[in-house]
Amino acid sequence: MRPGDDPSPGLVAVEDHHPQTAAVEDHHPQAAATRLGPTHSGQAAETAGGSASRHPIRSEEHLLTARHAVRAATLDVGFTLVDQTRVVTAASELVRNAYIHGGGGTLTIEVVRRADVRGLRLTVTDHGPGISDLDAAFTDGYTTGPGLGHGLGGARRLMDDFRIHTAEGHGTTVVATRWTTPP
């Protein structure tokens, strides 16, 4: 989702923006299934670049090394400077969330491609309490001070594709992708 596509913040529905899949994530707490399976199917000709790296998120130092790793990956993929900043900032938000609200977790960085276009996929998983009110988590807590609320809305605006799987008591997984050229 590029900024400007939807000027109103606090969108509730979390959608995949590939026209082929049109998967709308149902985030009612009752539907607790972790739907990681369908994430990649149905997307035409999308392949992993084969270079996936996993990073633990269990300490303050890990937050720093995670940022460095993401920055290095954005350079490999060939993002512009502004896009690099977007991706690293989104990663910083997501990773901090996992650390503070999720009790720690893992970051996976993957180079992906779709036809001739390269992109970077960030997967942040934690096994914390999960998010019971996704609507609130996406509503910007920024007017009442950043660092409050989960701040997921911001990270979502910075990335092209954004999917979240969460349920109370089951932890949270966020999969966010940014492409070098708009899909």
Binding site: P9, V82, R86, D140, G154, R157, L158
Partner: peptide, 8 residues
Amino acid sequence: ITLVELGL
């Protein structure tokens, strides 16, 4: 630019 897009 990133900050305004972040909504901050």
